[in-house]
Design a protein around this nucleic acid. Sequence first.
DNA 1: CGACCTATTTGATATCCGTCAAATAATCTG
DNA 2: CAGATTATTTGACGGATATCAAATAGGTCG
Lengths: 119, 119
Amino acid sequence: MPKTLPVLIDASPLCCTPLGSTDPLSEADALALALRLKALADPVRLRLVAFILAQADLEACTCDLAPYVGLTDPTVSHHLKRLESAGILAKERRGMNVFYRVIPEAIHAISRVLDLTGG
Amino acid sequence: MPKTLPVLIDASPLCCTPLGSTDPLSEADALALALRLKALADPVRLRLVAFILAQADLEACTCDLAPYVGLTDPTVSHHLKRLESAGILAKERRGMNVFYRVIPEAIHAISRVLDLTGG
DNA sequence: CGACCTATTTGATATCCGTCAAATAATCTG
DNA sequence: CAGATTATTTGACGGATATCAAATAGGTCG
């Protein structure tokens, strides 16, 4: 097999009209949004994202992330993979290390959907 | 205002500094935020919230919500309870029916934490 | 009170999820 | 190539969760 195509296995385009609009939420849009929210809805993953965002170069390697959250490497890898699958993180291998950075638009898109001012 | 004492069993105050700030996220804040996000991170619950927000009087009774999402009454009750425990919905009994309304500030608080503009 | 209606709780079940240890992969260096 | 280092995958396990049917609670009206 040709190897991992672009990733984003779970996440659909980016979706949807703000929650506060007078339109109901289609099942498809609800599912897509729920997938993103689920990826963020874990204390460990939230801390991983916040940690990466707090770095000067806006990226962090697994070797720094695992000690920070105090869990084993496999567990941290699992969380990072979930965030990547949801389109929230992007990974890049450099030498022996793997670096992750946040895709701000993914998080901000969620923020916009949940912004009720103007509904 | 008479009625319904605050009911927030799960949800702590309201928390926290925006994700994009240079501060890391404490474990406690991460947990509190994750609880809120988890409550929203389900397609059925998202559609329930959107449906209520779309009503003219900004509330809906279980009798309308259950048919809308196409699940059994007990299942819908379960989801509504989860949303209420997270401080996202407030319930009020009137006669034989129970009405739910959204607490906009709860949702908007999440939106603000996830707003990265200005981080 | 008793029949009836709406909503929630209880119990059961199948699935998903977070975690770790052990095995495997990817890369660098000698 | 062999050894060392970092990261991910696999396998296992306990705990959470979404769902339904059946039982129960809350409330109205005859």
